[in-house]
Amino acid sequence: MVQEEGRQITVRILRGEGVKTQEVEYQVAVEPGWVVLDVVLHIQARMAPDLAVRWNCKAAKCGSCSAEVNGKPRLMCKTRLDDLDLTKPVVVHPIKTFPRIKDLVTDVSWNFEVNKKIQPFTPKKDAAFIYFQEDIDRVQEMRKCIECFLCQNVCHVLRNREQYQRFVGPRFFVRLAGLEMHPLDDADRLKQIEEDGIFLCNITKCCTHVCPEDIHITDNAIIPLKERVIDKSYSFWNWVLQPFSSK
């Protein structure tokens, strides 16, 4: 145990490389207003110089410092110590769903591979790019995503069911919804969205609960996409009217 002077709290960080891990306990003197990331960086600077952690902006804008604090998926830079029960040790684990590299750093490269497969913005030919705020509000909500991958981490379809081959995860349904709802986008991704596993989602909404950007992932991205896919491929009316449609 490493000890310091001042207002003491106990922190346990899951450390180790790959699958070999253990919690290591530190006693830290903290300052007012500190967030969990402050504590982790303090430990890194004073006690464990090789403690691996990802962070960048420290202001909840970049989505780098995702972790599980006392079992809850959160951004460390947004988790204030004041909001935690400090009579017990603060337990910091890396996000569980992705393979651990070292300490709090995990291999999230799968997400970047998935992103490459999404058909990008495809504007209508000769689009004049005149559109209105009311057209873009929904799209802007989707584009708030900071790619912290907390939704990917908490979603049981990935976390417990390991459907990496069949399911792109909430983050990419958010991206797809932003593209599909764009007033000027001309591509049709609905067939792909079904193959991307939209119906593997059983709407348990954990992605929405953990989203630090407060994107209503389930209500405003996933469910509208489900409805669009049903419209396209499973609509009773389409089925009835199909013989009469001129296509």
């Binding site: 110089p49 691996a52 300490d103």
Partner: peptide, 10 residues
């Protein structure tokens, strides 16, 4: 510097 070359911020 302590530790190994694996993800070592120090």
């Amino acid at each position: 510097v302590e530790g190994s070359r694996l993800y070592n911020p120090g």
